[in-house]
Simulated assay, not measured.
Amino acid sequence: MSDPARAGIDLDGEWRFVADTERLFDATSLPHGDPIMVPGCWEAQVPRPYRIITAWYHRSFEVPADWRGGTILIGFGAVMYRCAVWLNGHRIGSHEGGYTPFALEAPDEAVRWGEANQIAVEVQNPLNAIAEYPALAVERVLNAEQYAPDLPLSEAPHGKQTWYSSQSGIWKSVRAERVGTAHFDALLVLPDVAASSATARWRVTGAESVGGLSLDLAVLDPSGLEVSRTRVALDEGSRSGEASVPVPQPQLWDLDSPLLYRLEARLLGAGGEQDCLSKRFGMRTVGT
């Protein structure tokens, strides 16, 4: 989830945990709570974890003063199942889906530059309404919905989680990052062994206009040596696009030799580098 090219703060480690079974709290009135480690599910750390449908995580972290003028992103590897995030009492966004990464942008008015910032995350998991496992009967699943009527268990995507204990909470890493006003919203790499190349697909957000912005795309081989570099000017009317980047004499990935390349993508503007992301990828063809 995180990228070493971006200035960032690792928010893994000890947070405070508050079970809110009766939905009594909000982001500005949280008790101190109990220690909990992130990443990790609360079922493995909290006494009597079942029937906790709603819970809060909170902690503080300092935003460097020299980050002022940039954009702050709070990125989560995954939160099970639905969550909303507050920074210093400002709701900055929400996400639904327990297995997908996401990042939320903190507006300037929510950030205390050069000071401690309070982050609070409200987490809801309707799967935790089940108190006894395995819950194979449909009736048992439907009966559990009374504990989370606004988020019915039957409407939450799930597989065998009703067969065994659910996992709830912030179960993957969290990181705060500074990016430019214009920054990457997505970056994907698709290898093409036959063409000795890869396709880089991107989406840019933040700036009112992408005119004048360009991408610098560098491919590094498994030993870290640069093997190609491509410059692409962004179209005025498009915030997404793709480009082919050469991968000469590709070294193939396989189980016995899992060689990985790295694509380093830099977003450049008149003021210099706006953002930078890197993605690892393997050169491999899969067929039947």
Rank of each mutant, 00 (worst) to 15 (best):
A218M: 03
P64Q: 02
D275S: 01
D235G: 15
T288D: 13
A135V: 02
S223N: 11
G169I: 02
P31V: 01
N88R: 08
E226N: 11
I72E: 01
H32G: 05
C83F: 00
E22V: 06
G224N: 07
I170G: 00
D192N: 11
G159R: 08
A27W: 01
P149D: 02
T100F: 11
L190M: 06
Q167P: 01
A186F: 05
P49V: 05
G40L: 00
E105P: 03
G269S: 11
D26A: 10
P157F: 06
E132V: 15
V174K: 00
D20V: 11
A233N: 10
L277Q: 04
L73E: 02
A120T: 10
D3W: 00
S209I: 03
V286S: 15
L87S: 03
P64S: 07
R284Q: 11
A148W: 14
G206W: 07
L263Y: 07
E139S: 15
E62Q: 05
I130E: 01
W56F: 02
P49K: 06
T71V: 14
F25H: 14
G40Q: 00
I130N: 00
A106D: 12
S60G: 05
V210L: 02
E109N: 12
L260N: 04
K172M: 12
L260S: 12
V79I: 15
I53N: 03
A44R: 09
W171G: 04
P35A: 15
D256M: 04
P246A: 15
G33D: 06
P250E: 01
Q124W: 03
Y164C: 14
